[in-house]
């Protein structure tokens, strides 16, 4: 219930109306959107029960490692009603052809695969939000200040997922496992996404917000 309460309204893309449409403009708009979502995500993480009790270095470590996974899971959720496109925002959808043209092909295919898997499972919002929190909690940060506290944080979320499934789908004992098994592809895709965006900044000079760059650097 707490995760449902602290989920914010999806943001809209905010393209510069004075710039003519181009791939560069779409990328700038996309990165600006992701940066604003990242800001919300940091606020959201603080509302996950147990997160704020972790030490500041551990909060940073989890966010630096898991932020892209959490953001991409929202894209997957928004894209669930579409067959081929990815919906980053209600007014920013990318087809496979557009993604390729923007240099984001490494993202498109695995995100569509993940969308397909979760759609086949008929995943609901409660499950998605728990997966999002678990992706953050299970971020395999290299150095932790207090790994016991992080483990307790993970266990609380895992128990919440188990409670949810045992009360809503008592006959499906494999559902928690199936949901957790979608996380490796999410992690792999998040890393590919971070590399893609870093490359777009260094090689194609796509301007990006300082926070977004700082978090990309922490991820790679």
């Amino acid at each position: 219930s707490q995760l449902l309460v602290c989920e914010t309204t999806p943001l809209l893309a905010d393209p510069d109306p004075t710039t003519p449409d181009s791939d560069l403009k779409t990328l700038v708009t996309l990165c600006d959107l992701l940066n604003r979502e990242l800001l919300l995500l940091i606020g959201w993480a603080k509302n996950i029960p147990g997160f704020s009790s972790l030490s500041l270095p551990d909060q940073m470590a989890l966010l630096q490692s898991g932020w892209m996974e959490a953001l991409l899971l929202l894209v997957v959720w928004r894209s669930r009603g579409l067959d081929e496109d990815l919906e980053f925002a209600e007014n920013l959808r990318l087809s496979e052809v557009q993604s390729r043209s923007l240099g984001l092909e490494e993202l498109h295919t695995p995100l569509r695969r993940l969308t397909h898997t979760l759609r086949e499972m008929n995943i609901n919002l409660e499950e998605l939000l728990l997966l999002k929190a678990l992706a953050l909690a299970n971020s395999d940060a290299e150095v932790l200040d207090c790994s016991r506290a992080v483990q307790t944080f993970q266990e609380t979320l895992h128990e919440a997922l188990q409670d949810l499934e045992s009360s809503t789908r008592p006959s499906d004992s494999h559902r928690v496992g199936r949901l957790l098994m979608t996380l490796p592809l999410l992690r792999q895709t998040a890393l590919a996404a971070a590399r893609c965006f870093r490359r777009l900044h260094t090689e194609s000079r796509v301007p990006m917000n300082t926070l977004f760059l700082e978090m990309l650097d922490a991820k790679i």
């Binding site: 603080k46 909060q59 700082e214 650097d217």
Partner: peptide
Amino acid sequence: QEKHKILHKLLQNGN
């Protein structure tokens, strides 16, 4: 933490 000063600030200050 110095390298990641924006995140540090956001988590510390709450704004």
